[in-house]
Amino acid sequence: MNRIKKIFYIIIGILSFALGAIGAFIPLLPTTPFLLLASFCFVKGSEKFDRWFKETKIYKRHLENYVDSRSMTMKQKVSILLFADTMIAFPLIMLENIYVKIFLLILVIFKYYYFMFKIKTINEE
C-alpha cells in the first residue's frame, strides 16, 4: 500500500479515535462506531498505531469484548444502531428513487437482525 493511503488511514483513525473518546463522555455522540472505524484505519495504516490503540483504556473498555468474543452490551448495540439509523435517514428522506429507499429499508432490517441475533449481548460491568 502506498504511503499516501497509509497517512490517510492514520489521519482518519486519529479523528475517529478523538470522536470516540469524546463520545465516551458525551451521551449524544456514539463511542463504539467511531472506535471501530479507528481500529480499522489503524490496522490498515500502521502497526505502531494499531498496537498503541489496542493498549488504550478506551479500546479495552469499549471494543475488546467485541473483538475477543463478538459480543456487546445492549448500550453499545443501541448506540451503534441509532447512529447508523440517523445516517441512513438522510438519504431515505432526501432521495426520491423508490429502489434506493427499498434497499435502505432492507439494510435497516438486516442491521437490526444482525445486531440482535448474531452478536451476543452481555451485561454491562
Results as ranks from 00 to 15, higher is better:
6 K>E: 15
10 I>C: 14
58 I>L: 06
56 T>V: 11
30 P>E: 02
110 F>W: 15
44 K>N: 09
63 L>K: 03
64 E>H: 12
45 G>Y: 00
38 A>H: 06
123 N>R: 12
25 F>Y: 14
95 L>I: 10
63 L>V: 10
120 K>A: 13
104 L>P: 05
63 L>N: 00
20 G>D: 01
76 Q>F: 03
111 K>F: 10
68 D>E: 14
37 L>P: 04
73 T>M: 06
110 F>S: 11
9 Y>S: 00
7 I>R: 01
66 Y>R: 02
33 P>C: 02
117 F>N: 11
1 M>H: 08
93 I>T: 13
1 M>I: 12
39 S>I: 04
77 K>R: 11
120 K>D: 13
9 Y>R: 01
85 D>Y: 11
67 V>S: 10
8 F>H: 07
68 D>Y: 08
38 A>Y: 06
121 T>R: 13
45 G>M: 07
85 D>E: 11
45 G>C: 02
33 P>E: 03
56 T>E: 08
17 F>W: 01
56 T>W: 06
94 M>G: 10
95 L>F: 11
74 M>A: 08
72 M>K: 03
5 K>F: 12
76 Q>S: 10
20 G>K: 01
83 F>I: 01
103 F>V: 02
23 G>Q: 00
13 G>E: 07
28 L>F: 15
102 I>V: 14
81 L>I: 08
94 M>F: 13
72 M>Y: 06
52 W>A: 05
42 F>C: 04
69 S>T: 12
118 K>M: 15
21 A>E: 09
104 L>H: 03
80 I>F: 11
62 H>T: 05
26 I>Q: 06
37 L>H: 04
60 K>G: 07
24 A>L: 11
112 Y>I: 02
117 F>A: 09
110 F>G: 11
114 Y>D: 06
6 K>H: 09
111 K>S: 07
5 K>D: 09
77 K>P: 00
104 L>Y: 08
92 L>R: 04
11 I>P: 00
111 K>V: 01
75 K>G: 08
31 T>N: 03
63 L>R: 03
55 E>D: 14
122 I>E: 12
122 I>Y: 11
123 N>M: 14
36 L>D: 00
14 I>F: 04
117 F>E: 14
22 I>S: 03
27 P>W: 09
22 I>G: 01
100 V>S: 09
104 L>D: 01
44 K>Y: 05
11 I>S: 14
10 I>S: 05
59 Y>R: 02
78 V>N: 03
